[in-house]
Design a protein around this nucleic acid. Structure first.
Lengths: 139, 139, 139, 139
DNA sequence: GTGGTCTAGACCACG
DNA sequence: GTGGTCTAGACCACG
């Protein structure tokens, strides 16, 4: 992997550590990050994003906990070869629907129509270049 | 309106004051709460939910700011007769995108694909029977 | 911006949290506070003014809601780079009329004539050198 | 005095007792209420306005304190023959400017121009039918 | 009775 | 370090 870019938006609702983790997950999902690829070092990424090193460390720790990346003592962090599925499908669906509920309620409260909501979701997903997964992968 | 029930989950991620606000908004949206209906008094609701009165007051204050309910000096809070359009279109879009960001981040975190996300949104919108706005009304 | 001073009058009619908010708004309006300038931390300001931290937090939260300042997670509050137009025209008019009502009631209570009231408003506006908006800017 | 009408707006910022007091003061100022004219009884006005009798009593008490009306034991309240000036001119100006300051700050914050502010004040004063005082009266 | 403001202090998330 | 939420309780204005 050559050029994998992180970008974070501070001040938004989403915590920085979560944004970092999500971008790694997304990279793995889209294939931008392949198994074995190294992640930037904690310090390097913290410097590049001008954020606290603890924040990067927290993001990486969560990725390790979830089996997305693996830590090689003294070498750094690498994309895991095969990802463990941490949450059960039921649990994942439960959390998805909870998040969805919050989003749709806010949108309805803001007086947006179903079409406007759908459109905004489509745009956002296109932005993320979230592609359907190749074949028989996780999820 | 006869029996409007509040129930809160403590220990969950969502703050109590927000849970209260959301339930009132939802009640208004579904018609369970009609314009002019009184809300429980701050102290009464605090007692009933076994939480602090300040927490209820904070929830109610936010509802007033958003034009959902109105305060009648010395009498308490009542569902607003006609919901005002408090926010500018730019602000409403900003809030929509912020809510969307949080939702999509959670979905990505949970490893759902773009198709799965879109599908879940469609289902949810269908559930709500959210129709295009008839005229100058809110959906 | 070097030295921005807050001073509050306790025992007056105006709540402390509002006095703080007003002083920030005024500072922003006059340019004493420039976009990006940090506000004192909640705890620091509370200590300096010898008031409770919650009171400062309440003031800051209102400023965030109104788009005057922005919160940077873990870093504190900063003057917003460009003031958003948060409220709809209807809402802004509603607030103007409410403020006007309070003012005129006080003036009538104090037995001032219509001419005296008008004159005092003219003087005040002249003082502020409030000019018609140049372009898409705020006055 | 035959038909003197009170109307109060509940839910606004101004307390009801203040609205009642202001309308009496205004009536006296415009001549709608002449010295010796009776005010509605506390109970009658409370019934008519569908408010608490304590609220009317509080308004009347303040008017008596300020020398606008006089209480005749067992008969009720009457417009005072000659009004005492309660506050010094300096004090009245101080309070006027304080109220004005709050109003103008709010208006400026809401992005209204000087012209818009002046216009809104003129309209409001016209609504109140606040006329210049006849001759060498108070104020 | 109603809500509004403020305090002192705890505990948590994020950086 | 930063802010966010919540509690328990006081005191006040308004009705």
């Amino acid at each position: 992997m050559a050029a994998f870019h992180f970008n974070i938006t501070t001040g938004a609702g989403t915590p920085i550590y979560r944004q970092i983790g999500d971008q790694v997950r997304l990279g793995v999902a889209t294939g931008a990050l392949a198994p074995g690829d190294p992640l930037p070092s904690v310090r390097a990424l913290a410097d590049r994003l001008v954020i606290n090193a603890n924040t990067v460390a927290k993001a990486y720790a969560e990725l390790v906990r979830d089996g997305v990346v693996e830590s090689q003592q003294g070498l750094g962090f690498f994309v895991a070869s095969k990802k463990r599925q941490v949450y059960s499908r039921a649990e994942r669906l439960r959390r998805l629907h909870q998040a969805l509920e919050a989003f749709v309620h806010e949108a309805v409260f803001l007086d947006f129509t179903a079409d406007e909501i759908r459109e905004s979701v489509d745009e956002k997903l296109a932005d993320l270049e979230l592609q359907p997964k190749p074949a028989g992968e996780k999820a």
